[in-house]
Design a binder for these strands. Structure first.
Lengths: 206, 206
DNA sequence: TTGTGGGATGACCGCGTGGTCATTTTGTTA
DNA sequence: TAACAAAATGACCACGCGGTCATCCCACAA
């Protein structure tokens, strides 16, 4: 029992540290330019070692992406499913997303890049799942809006497209923050997004 | 004179047809997976021929991107700089963008992919210009918002971030349209975007 | 018809990659 | 300490890419 779990722990640690290294390298060089050798160097192991834990390069990248993205989505969903008004929940989820990307360095590159799968149609099978994760994100957001529409909190319109607009608009600002050396307080950007989205920018002439 | 222009015409035609082929292949396979041979096959010429007109693969992709993007931005700027209210100008520019991406098939892949340059820092020099084109787009939009703020048409806030939010939110919906087999009328999506952006989604309880 | 010049060709090359596996190192048990 | 199993290594291979260039082709002038 103890021995068994020990092996598992070591194995899990290795896998985790390889994925961490993968994240760091991809964040620095981009997915296309990242070689298996780069990752091995970053992790301080030989290239061959990587193939003891992952079938091939694709699996390494895929697993790395999946574990990171599910951490992100977990934190966001938690906020969206909490008690409170739509505004409160949106604010909290935005704060968490911003926090996550700040901690995870330039993980957004991986995040963005995976949304538009490349390669021949055969290769795209694998990436479909990751694309689906993004879509799931949007669908959940859309469900939230749908709910708010039924409660009469917000205007009736196409919830899915609304979710797309919100999610991508938000991403743009998060990406900008990641590139900036001294981004403004997270609250400022959250204010801007939520205010624009909920009440628009037009000044009402009454 | 005639001879000279004839050569030029032939040359220009070749360049154009190579760029067209490049667009088609990249739209189909993605930038990373597109080889020079693919493009040559698509254009119906030998691989070597491409190097008579373009220094290397990067130049081909870059030039292709630049000519397409400046066509797009030209049409959008025209709309944004026209006479009329902010709403009218935004609507017209959105219509044109949607129109453009419909005509240009899946050019958006190229458009999106170029925003996040990959490769080693040395290679990123080239792509900087293309990144700048995107930034220019945002800056112009921000200037428009700035102007509207001074006129008192819209609330005061960070114009640049507002432009980011708007542009990317819009992109998301355009991308969605491109993927859909039967997208709704362009006007519907324009309505959704403009209404959300100008007046928000919250129902005012007065 | 023949000669000529420049555009077009595709076999070829070097390189860097992902992936393999015989060998070495490490850790454990008797 | 010795014997053994498992994990790690990195030299090595095959492949496909971007890019080159000796050769070919053909429009057109003489």
């Amino acid at each position: 029992m103890t021995a068994r779990s020990k092996e598992e722990v070591v194995q899990e640690y290795r896998i985790q540290s390889l994925q961490d290294a993968t994240m760091r390298v991809i964040a620095r060089k981009g997915i296309g330019a990242t070689t298996v050798q780069d990752i091995a160097d970053e992790a301080g192991v030989a290239k061959g070692t990587i193939y003891l834990y992952f079938r091939d390069r694709d699996e390494l990248v895929e697993k790395t992406f999946e574990s990171a993205i599910s951490r992100l989505h977990g934190r966001i969903d938690e906020a969206l499913e909490a008690e409170g008004s739509l505004e409160q929940r949106l604010r909290e989820s935005l704060l968490r997303a911003i926090e996550f990307f700040r901690e995870s360095g330039q993980f957004f590159r991986l995040y963005i890049a995976q949304r538009f799968p490349e390669g021949t149609p055969q290769q795209q099978r694998k990436q479909q799942r990751q694309c689906d994760q993004y879509r799931t994100r949007i669908v959940k957001l859309a469900a939230l809006f749908e709910e708010a529409m039924q409660k009469g909190e917000i205007r009736r319109t196409d919830a899915y497209r609304l979710a797309l607009f919100f999610a991508e608009g938000t991403n743009a600002i998060i990406v900008e923050r990641v590139m900036e050396e001294n981004p403004p307080p997270a609250e400022d950007d959250v204010d801007l997004i939520v205010a624009t989205f909920l009440d628009g920018i037009r000044i009402q002439r009454s």
